[in-house]
Simulated assay, not measured.
Amino acid sequence: MARYTGPKNRICRIFGEPILGSGKSLGKNSNPPGQHGGTRKRKAPSEYAVQLKEKQKAKYTYGLLEKQFANTYVEAARLKGATGENLIKLLESRLDNTVYRLGISPTRPAARQLVSHKHIMVNGEVVNIPSYFLKPGDVIELKPKSKVNETVVSFIRGKNPRINWVEWNEKDMKGTYLSHPERDAVPENIKEQLIVELYSK
Rank of each mutant, 00 (worst) to 15 (best):
R3H: 15
R3A: 13
G6K: 02
G6W: 03
P7Q: 15
P7I: 15
R10L: 15
I11E: 10
C12P: 14
R13W: 10
I14H: 14
L20W: 15
G23M: 15
G27K: 14
K28T: 00
S30N: 09
P32T: 12
Q35D: 13
Q35N: 15
H36Q: 13
G37K: 15
R40W: 08
K41Y: 05
K41E: 09
R42W: 11
E47Q: 07
Y48K: 11
L52Y: 04
E54S: 08
K55H: 07
A58I: 11
K59E: 11
K59M: 14
G63E: 05
G63W: 09
L65N: 11
E66Y: 09
Q68M: 02
T72A: 02
Y73G: 06
Y73M: 14
R78Q: 12
A82K: 13
A82H: 05
A82I: 10
A82C: 06
T83Q: 07
L90F: 01
L91E: 03
S93T: 12
S93F: 08
L95C: 11
D96W: 03
N97R: 10
V99G: 05
V99M: 01
V99N: 00
Y100H: 07
Y100W: 11
R101L: 04
R101V: 09
L102P: 01
L102Y: 04
G103A: 00
G103N: 03
I104L: 01
R108Q: 10
P109S: 09
A110Y: 03
R112H: 09
Q113N: 14
L114M: 07
H117F: 06
K118I: 03
I120R: 00
I120E: 00
M121G: 03
E125M: 08
V127I: 13
N128L: 01
P130I: 07
S131F: 11
Y132K: 11
F133D: 02
K135Q: 14
K135W: 12
V139G: 05
I140W: 02
I140L: 01
K145M: 12
V153M: 00
F155C: 03
R157G: 11
K159F: 04
I163P: 12
I163E: 08
W165D: 01
V166N: 07
V166H: 00
W168E: 06
N169R: 12
M173K: 01
T176R: 13
H180C: 02
E182K: 07
D184A: 02
A185F: 09
A185M: 00
A185K: 01
I190W: 12
I190C: 06
E192L: 04
E197M: 08
L198T: 13
L198A: 10
Y199I: 15
